[in-house]
Every structure is written in structure tokens, then in C-alpha cells.
Design a protein around this nucleic acid. Structure first.
Lengths: 192, 192, 192, 192
DNA sequence: TCGTAAGCGAGACGGTACGTCCGGTCTTTTC
DNA sequence: GAAAAGACCGGACGTACCGTCTCGCTTACGA
């Protein structure tokens, strides 16, 4: 026996998330309204609130489906730590050039920073996996003898992610060579 | 000739900024309201809007006056770059332990990330001076022969500020030795 | 050939009308909701709308089945006009003492008064037959020589029904002797 | 000392009541919405809710200012009861021919009948004064010897008001001679 | 006896109005 | 002439109800 009653409309779900992404890119997080999402998506506000508890929740799921495939690319393990992590850095620095992705990341940051009580879990949901993956890959590099045993992996990863966040928040446009410069900084920090 | 009429009430100005800091710590940026600031401070909304143009502006000035002791500490120039910058790092890492200051910094971040159009100027107003001061001090260190001429100062500074921002946004509590670890990372990055 | 497929559930029909009467007595017409009728009756909203076109229609049928014993009492024709009509008055004045019936009558009044476009037909459906029956009986009394030929039957009937409506709407509790006083008024009006 | 702060806008108050009357005449009570009142009047919903607690309250006050001057004309006391009351009847029967007044009266009836809990007070607020005035005038007529001492004044008045209400609710258009017929019925009822 | 067509409970849906809240402006009186 | 008080508009909030629309299940007719 399957569930009773009319099933949830996948069509609406997609329309809502899609409209959220579009409006975020156009207006930014603060000016994004539930009414606008409803109007743009064709879904009623009731339907949106039935499935998402708040604006932050919609944005979170929109980000989940929209950007994770881009930024959360699992770090490859080719056996060469530096090459693997450099590839991730290059993707992270140059990748999110398109406005929707930038807007989503900014929205997540705003939601996280703006509501101390509910935001922590939200932000960690997206950043934590990436952070863990980087730390894991680097620790594997230590085990493989490619990094010195005493390398301060977590501080380096936080500096890396922080730098990306900082550039995002200050809207610093990525410049050619950025990935290389960041890579250099990171590896000299790790190979004292 | 002095200005005519009743002079601006310094008493109100202080009460507004103080109430803003308190409420920010209690509620976060999104739930902070102008009505609440007016009620808590005893000033009328009219008075607030006479002197500040928006909620963001009040928060900005509250941050200005509230965090100066912490972040705007001018980097000293004792002749020893590393000692000078390490002192600043120590202050920045351990300083903002009190909730109001953290709340202010988060509020600024939320406002900046949430409103792409108006936020850039706001954020730069607080971060830019610090960033410039750090870069200037480090460049002086290069001139003084204490750092290698090819050191990538801006990337290092962005990583430093980004790391602080990242820890702030993720509400990572500062742990003993953090300042030391960050310092180590920074200097090995700069002295390749 | 009878109809194919599953026949209409009499069980549901009764449950809906019964739930409507109960809820009307508890909440009044304005606060009565279709969702509540569905929940209370165990029928789905789909089923309700399959058989009734609107809230007003459900209420109308609920009234139809609920108040017939009270108001639709056909005026008897024993040959004595005054005795026949007085019996009807007594039933109408003292009858609807129970809350559900009162609530139904009020609901019909509210629906009629509240929606000028659709209400006329609704109200006439319940009042018209009674009005016609009274007028017919009185006219028969004229024919039988029990009332003066010039008696203004329609005005008198409207005054009688209006008085009952007025007492209903103002929630005036019936008092002993009311039926007698109304009867007196009516007959002196008819026998000028 | 007068009250502090900006005083209530009389302009808004009038605009709201006026818009309510217009919309009532156009749409009827059930289709009247607060949003429409706000839009038509130029007042914000906030302002409306600041001064009136519900749609019924706005309608009540709109009726107060709009129709009471028309129907609640205090019954004159020229010394001739019948002439005085007949004048009132004539005004009540022929007067409210204009749609806004009819709509208001219907709206009050709908509100009263539709919400048993809150409506009683509402209806009595408008009907009670008229009823009392009629009863008072008729009792004065008894004292003056113009009516028989045993006349059942209250039943007669309720029949009169009920007849008007009944005709209102059934949307019976007033016909020539109605006032006369009602008058005849009333007086023969009172002068048994 | 069995297929099938209509009825059914469940419940999600788009739409519309609700009553509340907040940002920012305006208008009074008081100081 | 600045300040406190507080009413004002515009517009977003999150909720409720309407009437419609799938679903998958149930029932009893008619082949």
C-alpha cells in the first residue's frame, strides 16, 4: 500500500526551487519574498509553507539542488594530494562565476549570519561536507608521506574556505592567477 | 555663530547605539526592529531616522563604536613585523568573545551578504581599513627586509581575514593556541 | 437499466447533513467551514462538493431536513381558520427552542442577507411555501365567511413571519403567552 | 494638556466609512473585503485594524453614520400618535430606496444572523433605539387616551419592525400603498 | 464470477482574504 | 528647533478556507 491522497506535485517543487534561484540572482536574499516566489513559480504560498518552513529553508534546498553539484565536487584521490586539492581550488575560484550560484552562496551566508539561532545548522549543512572532504584528503596526504606529519590541516582548510567566503562577501571578482596564488599560500603553509 | 535651536542630544545618540548593540546580541540582525530600538533607547523613531538613514546605518555606526577597541586597533610598528602582526591576530582571535561584538560582526556580515546592491560599501567601510593597515604593515616589513620581496601579501591578508570571518560565521568558538596556529600558517605562507 | 457503478452513499449524505447541523449550532454560519464538515462527518470534501454546490447549499438541505418538523407543518384545515392558524403560530413560536434549529434558521437568514445575488432564491425556497400556505388558508377563511372580505391577508402574513424573524434575529427568547398575544394582534388586524 | 503624538486622521476615518458604504452597495456583505476597503479608501489595513476590530465593526460604524440619520428619525410628538407613527412608517417604507442604505441594513442583518456570539449586541445597537422610541411614543399615546390601555404595544412594534425586516431580507420592493396597509394593520391591532 | 465504472477518503493544489508586523514618513505637542 | 509620541502608508508575513484536482481503494451492477 502506498501513501493515500494526492501525491506531492514534483512539478511545483521544481518550480518553487527554480523561481527561488532566479529571484535570488535578481534581488538578493533580503529582497527575496515568499509572495514573489509564489507568483513566479505558480505555486500558492500555502503550498510553499506546506513543504518549507521558512524563506531560509527554501533557499537552503534551492542551494542544495543548484550549487552542491558545482562546488561540492568530491575531491578526487589520484594519489597526488597537491594536484587533487589544486584542482578543487581552481574549480572553486573560477567556477561560481555565474550570478545564480553567487547569489545562492551569498543568500546562505546572509541567512546564516542574520539569524544566530537557526542559522548554524543551515550553514554547516553546506560547508561542513566540503570542509570535511578537504581535511580528509589532506590527512590522507600526510599518511601517504606527501605532507609533513605536523601540518596544521584544519587551520589551513579554514583559511582556504575563509578566503573564498571573504572574496564572495566582498564581491571581489576572481582574477587570473588567483587559484595559483592561493595554492602557493596553502602549500607553503602546510609544508613548513 | 553656533547653530540655532536645540542641539542634538548626545544622550539619545548613545542610547540608540547602545540599545542596538544589546538587541543585536539578543535577537540577531533579521529580528532587530527599529521600533524595538526606539522603545529600548527611549528615543523616538523620528529621532533615529533624523540621524541615521536606515537600519543598516544604525547597525553600522553601532559596530563602529562597539568594535573599534577590538578590530580597529591600529597595527603597531615596533620595527618587528611578525611581533606586530601577531599581536593583532591575538587581539582579533581572542578579543571578540563577548556576545555583543560577535553579534555586531554577524549583523554586518548578514547585511552585506543579504543586499548585494547596498552592502558592498557597508562592508568595505569596516573591513577595508583593517585590510589596508595589514597590507601596509606587511609591505613595510618587506621594505625592512624582514619578509621576502616576492611575498604575496594580499592573498595572505585575505586568507587571514577570511579565516576570521569563517570562524565567526560558523560560530566556531576560539580555542587556546588558535592565534599561534594562525600565525604559523601565515608566516610560512609569507616566507616561502 | 439502473445506473452503473457504485451507488451514492446514503450514509455519507446523512453524516454530512448531521455534521452541518451540529457545527452550525456550535459555530454559527460564518465560522462554519467545509473542512470542518468534512472532518466531522468523515466524508471527504470531494464527496461533499460532488453532491452540493456550495456551503449555502449544504446548509439549505440541512435546514430542509432539520426544520421540516417545525416550520413546514402544513396548516391544517379543520374548518376553523382561527384555530388552524393559531395552532401553527403556537408551533412556530414555541417549537424552535432547540439550538440546532435556531442555528439553522439564523444561518439561512445570514446567507440570504449576506449575498444579495444568490440569496433570494435560497430564502424563498424555505419561506415562500410557508407564506403561501398561510395566505391560502386565510383566503379560504374569507371564502368560508370567517374573515371579512377586505382583510389584507398578505400584509398580515408578512407581519406574522416578520415578527418571528425579528425575534429570531434578535435572539428574543419566547415567553409564555407570546403565541396568544401574536394571535390577538393578527386577528384584530384581519377583522377590522 | 491634550494627548501627545499625531492625532487620529479624521480624513482616513471618513474615507474608510465612505468606502465601506460604497463597496457594500456594490458587493454585499459577504464579498466585502478589508483589502478592498483599504484600497478604495487609501488607508492602510493597519490603520483600519487600529481603529476597528473587524469587518462587522467597520460596517456597524458605517451604518451608524450612514443610515441612522435616515431611519432613526426620532418619532415626532405632535400630540397625535397615529399621525406621528404613520409618518415614521411612511419614511421607513419608502425611505430606504437607495441601494447603499439597503445594503447596509442587509449587511447588519447578515452580520447579526451569521455570528451568534458577537452579533446580538451589534444588532441591538441599531434596532433597540428605534424599537424603544416607537414603544415610548405608543405608550405616551395610551397615557394621552388615544389608545386603549390594554394595547399590546411591544408585540405590535415587533410585528412592525419584523415586517420591515422581512421585506428587506426578501428584497420585496416597496409598492404604493404599503405604508397605508401597514398602518391600517397596526392600528386595528392596537385598537381592539 | 468477474470486470468495470462510478463513488469514496485522503489530502495536495491554486487562489484569495485574513489579521499582524515592520520600515520609513509625517504630524502633533512638549521642552 | 530638536525631541517624544504615535498615527500613517505600503507591503510582506504566515494562516485559513474555498472549491478543484489527483490518487488508490471500494463497491455493486451487468456482462
Amino acid at each position: 500500500m502506498t501513501t493515500k491522497g494526492r501525491p506531492r506535485s514534483e512539478r511545483s517543487r521544481i518550480a518553487v526551487l527554480s523561481a527561488t534561484r532566479d529571484l535570488l540572482a535578481e534581488l538578493g536574499y533580503e529582497k527575496l519574498t515568499m509572495d514573489a516566489i509564489a507568483a513566479r513559480s505558480g505555486a500558492s504560498k500555502m503550498t510553499i509553507y506546506r513543504w518549507w518552513s521558512s524563506k531560509a529553508a527554501v533557499v537552503a534546498e534551492a542551494a542544495m539542488e543548484g550549487t552542491i553539484p558545482v562546488t561540492a565536487v568530491l575531491i578526487a584521490d589520484t594519489g597526488d594530494v597537491r594536484a587533487d586539492v589544486d584542482a578543487w581550488i581552481a574549480a572553486a575560484v573560477d567556477g561560481p562565476a555565474d550570478p545564480p550560484t553567487v547569489a545562492l552562496a551569498l543568500a546562505l551566508t546572509a541567512a546564516t549570519a542574520g539569524d544566530p539561532r537557526a542559522g548554524g545548522e543551515l550553514y554547516e549543512r553546506f560547508t561542513q561536507p566540503v570542509r570535511d572532504a578537504l581535511i580528509t584528503r589532506l590527512r590522507a596526504g600526510i599518511t601517504a608521506g606527501q605532507l609533513s606529519p605536523g601540518a596544521d590541516v584544519t587551520t589551513a582548510v579554514d583559511a582556504l574556505l575563509g578566503l573564498l567566503l571573504y572574496r564572495l562577501v566582498t564581491r571581489a571578482a576572481p582574477e587570473p592567477g588567483d587559484a595559483q596564488r592561493i595554492s602557493d599560500l596553502l602549500w607553503s603553509g602546510l609544508n613548513r
